[in-house]
Design a binder for these strands. Structure first.
Lengths: 262, 262
DNA sequence: TCTTATTTGTTCGTATGTATT
DNA sequence: GAATACATACGAACAAATAAG
């Protein structure tokens, strides 16, 4: 097509549409390696520049992930290997869910119930102010214990979730241990006399930070969903967790009852 | 800079960063008209191609909106005029919130409490199957009354929210009226004996449809947050609303209590 | 370890189309 | 109709990262 001929929809968007359809219909299956851009250009009758723009669109949608270099073990353009993951925000804090089939907390239960294999890497550290702004706004400028969780489904990174706990609550307790035991740390808070009675979550979309992009294998234009989660024991915030999720990868479910009067 | 000299970060990303900073620090204030691409290219010492790529990035983030043509009344590159809007998912269904200062439902109250002026255009229609897939999955293949709300803050379109109500509930009642009265339609459901006792919401990120892009003034690469909201009267779903929000524009708040045992 | 091949990233220059004032 | 401004496309060149031998 000569450069000056413009149809209703731009070529690069049409190519993106075709590749997206190919991903959905099995031509480019989940987890597979895509052909190189020059091959795709020939296949769709266009130039590498157009395919490259299409590629960038699909990356922003989290459908593909590109590692530069000669295609092989690591490098190449990869189709996202797993489907959308559902997060049940309310029921996940019920004891029977958190302990489902011996799970260590809500995430384990969540991934297993969807037929995938969960894995969580955990780093524990102490941190002093300044804390991340959103966290300090809630917990105040005091030392905290941080439980940094790096979470995988079928060995694919799907979530980052650092939890911040006031050090005067956590220090020297089971909350500072790697194995949080049956039911996860929510159960440990209860053991310590800080039974969480109320949860607040604040959801927003934002650009990914560099560490998030590296861990979640996101491209620069792919948005991240941030869930700012606070667990309250009475009037006191005892836990703040900042969940970072690839925006297009997750489905978030909420459920609540209405009380009268209406 | 010659084409083969590459610094750590691509020029077009650096330019996007500079413009984004300019928007945040008041150089390009909310609601203002940006200079044309050739002017920006000169200002940042680069070419129009680079500025154009930067522009596309910022559009994907919903920070600017471009209307092609000679700059003037309508055309040009505009900085998004309003800040992030907060949606309180749980408290918004309490009667005192819905009726705040005489508000007609939750959205009115929400926008007013944030110092902006709400406006809602409403179209009411009857529809027969096939309904949108997600809606039919919940309500079944039956005729519905649709209340299509088009919502503005300070006359800027900020949300689309069609509500689907089974026709056997809504027909000939206040639910089919334009003015939903004090407290909005949730109060009208209660009047009709369908007191909503439970709410479920399912949140996902997706590409915008053409009508959404047109109404919300979104660019093709800007994601939309969809909230699939269902109101239940006992075991029966009596209302499904599909909220479409510009992804980066909204902050969604949830809150709930934990019951024992933990 | 070093060299070569492959693949995507970035930029430039140019040309033309399309939309609005 | 003229002027302005963004949209798209092509082609070329070189950079940078990874793979293969």
């Amino acid at each position: 097509m000569p450069p000056h001929v413009t149809t209703a929809r731009a070529q690069y968007r049409q190519v993106a549409d075709l590749i997206r359809a190919g991903i959905e219909n099995g031509e480019y299956p989940p987890g597979s390696l895509m052909p190189p851009e020059p091959v795709l250009a020939a296949r769709y009758g266009t130039t590498r520049a157009v395919v490259s723009k299409a590629s960038h669109i699909l990356r922003g949608e989290g459908l593909i992930h590109v590692i530069r270099g000669r295609a092989g073990r690591g490098a190449g353009t990869w189709v996202r290997p797993i489907p959308v993951i559902r997060r049940e925000a309310v029921t996940r804090y019920r004891q029977e869910v958190r302990e489902y089939a011996g799970s260590r907390g809500a995430f384990d239960a969540e991934i297993r119930s969807q037929g995938m294999t969960p894995r969580v890497d955990l780093q524990i550290a102490r941190e002093t102010p300044p804390l991340p702004l959103h966290v300090e706004n809630i917990l105040g400028p005091w030392p905290v214990l941080v439980r940094r969780r790096m979470m995988y489904a079928d060995d694919i990174p799907v979530q980052l979730a650092p939890s911040y706990i006031p050090l005067d609550i956590a220090d020297g307790t089971a909350l500072a241990e790697k194995d949080s035991g049956p039911g996860g740390i929510v159960s440990r808070f209860a053991d310590l006399g800080y039974r969480q009675t109320r949860i607040t979550e604040s959801i927003r979309l934002r650009r990914a930070t560099d560490p998030e992009r590296a861990f979640l294998r996101l491209e620069e234009d792919a948005p991240v969903t941030e869930i700012l989660h606070t667990g309250w024991a009475g009037e006191r915030p005892v836990e703040v967790t900042v969940h970072s999720l690839p925006g297009y990868l997750w489905l978030l479910d909420y459920e609540w009852s209405l009380s009268h009067p209406q």
